[in-house]
C-alpha cells in the first residue's frame, strides 16, 4: 500500500467522526437510559388508543387547538364514543401530571422541544 500512514489515519478519522454520537453518549454514562413514564394509576385508557397516541398525539393536539381556537368547538368525541374537553392543560395534564414525569420524559429523550409551555400552564409543575 502506498501512503499507508495517510490512508490509515484518513480511514480512522472518518470513522471516529461519523461515530461521534456513540462517543458522546458513552462519555455521559446515560447511554442505556430510556424514558420512565409515570402513567396515571386510576385511569386505564388514553383519549385514543395508546399506540396511536405515541406516534400521533402532536397531531391530535394541533387538531384540538385549531378546532377550539378557530371554530369554538370544545368537545372532542373519541373513536370509542367517549367525549373529552379539548384542552391541553385540563384534559391531557389532568391525567398526565406532572408533565415532567410524562411528557418531558419522552421529549427530552428525543430532543423534542414543544413551545406550548411558554403560554400553557403545567398544573403539576412548580
Amino acid at each position: 500500500m502506498y501512503d499507508a500512514g495517510k490512508i490509515i489515519s484518513g480511514i480512522i478519522i472518518f470513522f471516529i467522526l461519523v461515530s461521534f454520537p456513540i462517543w458522546i453518549s458513552a462519555a455521559s454514562g446515560t447511554i442505556g437510559d430510556v424514558p420512565e413514564l409515570n402513567l396515571p394509576a386510576d385511569e386505564e385508557q388514553c383519549v385514543e388508543d395508546a399506540e396511536w397516541m405515541r406516534a400521533n398525539h402532536m397531531d391530535l393536539l394541533i387538531d384540538w387547538r385549531e378546532t377550539v381556537v378557530r371554530e369554538g368547538v370544545r368537545v372532542y368525541t373519541a373513536s370509542d364514543g367517549k367525549e373529552y374537553n379539548m384542552s391541553l392543560t385540563d384534559t391531557c395534564l389532568d391525567c398526565h401530571s406532572p408533565k415532567a414525569e410524562f411528557c418531558d420524559q419522552c421529549h427530552d429523550y428525543v430532543a423534542a422541544v414543544p413551545n406550548c409551555w411558554s403560554c400553557h400552564v403545567d398544573p403539576g409543575g412548580s
Binding site: 461521534f20 454520537p21 458522546i24 453518549s25 428525543v110 430532543a111 422541544v113
Partner: peptide, 18 residues
Amino acid sequence: HSRLFMQPVPDFMIFVRD
C-alpha cells in the same frame, strides 16, 4: 438524525435542527 443515536442530545444538535 444523530439525536436518535445520542443520549443526552447536545444543544448544538438542537440548535442546528431549529
